[in-house]
Design a protein around this nucleic acid. Structure first.
Length: 734
DNA sequence: GCGTGACATTTTTTT
DNA sequence: AATGTCACGC
């Protein structure tokens, strides 16, 4: 078969695309055309008549990736792709549960809690159970529950060996009971519940196994235990699994991703059917060399080495700033220069390890009037006014939802306080009903609220979705509340935006997360399709919304390294390359030495991801001092800088001789003054890098005494923090 | 019942 | 620095 489809593929890519009907593992390095191979394979399978769109299941991790895949497929394949199941794990699980809600033991209008809803639900539960939240932190409980769910364990399967874990398991069980009572699920529950559904229901399982001939999984290295088992349930004797992944880009182990799934998949399914995509089409040579050298220091790898047909390109620029502000000014200068040379701002990325670092950078960019856009942070559907509006909607469709009830019963304030609610909760608990039902039989202000909800329900029954939402916002008093608030203009605008989002959702038919009416014939069991409101609410929970304004303008891209995965830019700045920040201290400090090692390796993979985002130019910067949690902290250069081959680096500081010899210098080249304690003529100052014969390199973080008594506190990179007497410790400037 | 001020607490992120 | 939580007083 000679298809134009395959023309621009290299031999490995072509081999992957045209694999026979067998399971295979594709080890695809950064920039090796992974998404292209995946989508081209789907198109190739359908075009060649090997499978109908109906027989394809394609799974991704993010909505963005799912959309991207869908778009690419439909441009290559001008046929109806409706029957194809393409989506995120959670989106597909939701689709399954909406179709088979009865068999899954859920109410038809079950709602989905996001992380913060889940945390409130846990706090509420713990309060009702009189659990000491000092001893059992709600966050830890959440972590415990989700961790077990993601490993496929219900409360009764949770390991409980001491008082603490037994109590945790009890809470887990009670939490699940509460969710069931209220008709809500959380994110991991979607997966676990649909897993159990297919596991127990053989006819249903056989139906889907027979249907899906080809299952394709993107970013396989990010799958957790439950997701892998979920996939395996779908794999019948006639199913070919096509897993694409890169173990070197696994950066979500901290939340349960299990890289071992790749090795296991190779053993269980691929049977040596492994294709490596190692040619990188993205970056120039020096950048790849740096990435390869860095990642080679990880012990646990499947092994892979990227190469490029391009030349070496430019060296990697390394810059040491005096302070975080100095670093920010440096970035601003370089960005402007590149922009003047014709590089679009949107083709440059400013990366950092943690969100807190963006503040200083934003400030500098704002002062210099460089347009920028920050990714991450608060998402659209997570804003409080949106959550309030959604809670009203949830209550309309699912009155058992106590969480939604509590969120809005007194917002805007209706004089229903803690005391009243306590009594209401008592009544509900005694009769074993929901707060809503208790409210319907009570009097006073609570009855007023119940009447309000009933009235809204009646008047929105026959309205189209956007108008119904509009009515809810007005009738609930939300609109008036924010109109009265002098800082409520933005919130009102967002509420309007919610109506727009609903209108858009209606137009598009609500795909791909929820099944439209067209998918009902797929099901072996007849079922009513969910209401548009239910589908919209699921959409809101599952796709928190990269729904941000200003996407069309040329702006510098700011984001965490995590958020940058899958993207590429002409120029990339990786900032804050300091010990403790990147690698982050939290990732290496906790737990056993094995955990520490794993933590460090994950940080290194994170650095690998960051480096491989760059096509042509890469900047690495670190600062000697940085404001963190309101205090100045002194940090050593990240060990990752030492792990890069020197011949591909260009030290920008050396061009400025004043910087290296300038012991007296107290201001960075870019103007930000750095405060330093006078060293009392000892030749040492706070913030200075020093070397010790035994402890290695470190940085002076404090100073006390003078003359022969002078002592310095040094934070060593590897040996911890120590006080040293200058008269005895043989320190030397480093 | 509700608003205000003192207090502690800070990873990374998607769904 | 900034944000959320909690206790207290009106």
């Amino acid at each position: 078969m000679s298809l134009p489809l395959l023309e621009n593929l290299n031999p490995e890519q072509r081999a992957a695309v045209t694999l026979p009907h067998e399971s295979a593992l594709i080890l695809a390095g950064a920039g090796s055309g992974k998404t292209r191979v995946l989508t081209t394979r789907i198109v190739w399978l359908i075009q060649g008549g090997q499978v109908s769109p109906h027989g394809i299941l394609a799974v991704t991790f993010t909505n963005k990736a799912a959309k991207e895949m869908m778009t690419r497929i439909s441009t290559m394949l001008p046929i109806n792709t409706r029957g194809m199941w393409v989506g995120t794990f959670h989106g597909l699980a939701n689709r399954l549960l909406r179709t088979h809600w009865r068999e899954a033991g859920l109410p038809q209008s079950f709602q989905i809690l996001d992380s913060s809803d889940q945390l409130s639900a846990i706090k509420r539960l713990m309060k009702a159970m009189n659990v000491d939240t000092e001893k059992y932190e709600p966050k830890k409980v959440q972590w415990f529950i989700n961790g077990h769910k993601e490993a496929g364990r219900r409360a009764r399967d949770a390991e409980a060996f001491d008082e603490y874990s037994m109590r945790m398991a009890e809470l887990y069980e009670a939490y699940d009971a509460q969710c069931q009572r209220e008709g809500v699920t959380d994110f991991p529950e979607l997966l676990l519940r649909s897993y159990e559904l297919l596991y127990r229901n053989e006819p249903l399982r056989e139906h889907y196994r027979d249907r899906f001939r080809h299952i394709l999984i993107d970013e396989f290295q990010d799958t957790n235990t439950l997701q892998y088992r979920w996939l395996k349930l779908f794999a019948g004797p006639h199913t070919a699994l096509f897993a694409v992944g890169d173990d070197d880009q696994s950066i979500y182990a901290f939340r349960g991703a299990n890289t071992a799934n790749m090795a296991e998949f190779e053993r269980e399914f691929a049977h040596g059917n492994v294709i490596r995509l190692e040619q990188n089409y993205r970056s120039h040579g020096h950048i790849l060399t740096a990435a390869n050298t860095l990642i080679a220091q990880n012990a646990h790898r499947l092994g892979k080495n990227l190469w490029t047909a391009e030349g070496d390109g430019e060296p990697i620029r390394v810059f040491e700033a005096y302070s975080d502000q100095d670093e920010a000014s440096f970035v601003v200068d370089e960005v402007r220069t590149l922009n003047r040379e014709g590089i679009a701002l949107s083709d440059m990325a400013l990366l950092y390890r943690s969100n807190a670092q963006s503040r200083v950078l934003e400030h500098a960019l704002f002062s210099a009037s460089v347009p920028y856009r920050v990714y991450g942070g608060l998402r659209f559907f997570e804003r409080q006014e949106i959550k309030h509006a959604l809670a009203y909607l949830r209550l309309l469709t699912n009155p058992e939802d106590d969480g939604a009830f509590l969120r809005v019963v007194n917002f805007p304030t209706r004089g229903i306080g803690a005391r009243t609610l306590e009594q209401l909760a008592d009544t509900a608990a005694r009769s074993g009903t929901s707060l809503w039902q208790a409210a319907c039989t009570s009097g006073g202000k609570v009855a007023g609220f119940a009447g309000l909800i009933e009235a809204i329900k009646a008047s929105t029954r026959d309205l189209p979705l956007p108008e119904a939402i509009d009515h809810v916002i007005e009738a609930s008093g939300l609109a008036d509340y924010y109109r009265a608030d002098k800082e409520g203009a933005d919130r009102l605008e967002n509420l309007n935006e919610l109506i727009n989002a609903a209108a858009l959702f209606s137009e598009e038919g609500g795909l791909p997360d929820a099944p439209g009416p067209d998918t009902a014939p797929d099901a072996p069991v007849a079922t009513e399709s969910p209401s548009e409101l239910d589908r919209f609410l699921a959409h809101a929970a599952l796709e928190a919304g990269e729904h941000q304004a200003g996407a069309g303008h040329d702006a510098l891209q700011l984001m965490t390294v995590h958020a940058a995965k899958g993207l590429e830019f002409h120029a990339v700045f990786i900032t804050g390359l300091e010990e403790g920040l990147f690698p982050h201290e939290q990732s290496t400090l906790k737990g056993t030495s094995a955990n520490e090692e794993n933590g460090l390796e994950e940080e290194r993979r994170l650095m690998y991801v960051a480096i491989t985002r760059a096509r042509r130019r890469l900047y690495l910067s670190h600062a000697q001092s940085r404001m963190l949690h309101g205090q100045v902290r002194y940090g050593l250069p990240s060990r990752f800088l030492d792990e890069l081959p020197e011949q591909v680096l260009l030290n920008l500081n050396r061009r400025d001789s004043a910087r290296t010899s300038g012991v007296q210098q107290t201001a960075g080249r870019y103007g930000a003054p750095v405060s330093r304690n006078p060293g009392h003529d000892t030749g040492y100052k706070v913030g200075q890098s020093v070397a010790h014969a035994k402890f290695g390199t470190g940085i002076i973080i404090d100073f006390e005494g003078r003359g022969p008594d002078a002592r310095v506190q040094v934070k060593f990179r590897d040996a911890g923090t120590k006080w040293l007497a200058l008269a005895y410790a043989r320190l030397s400037p480093a």
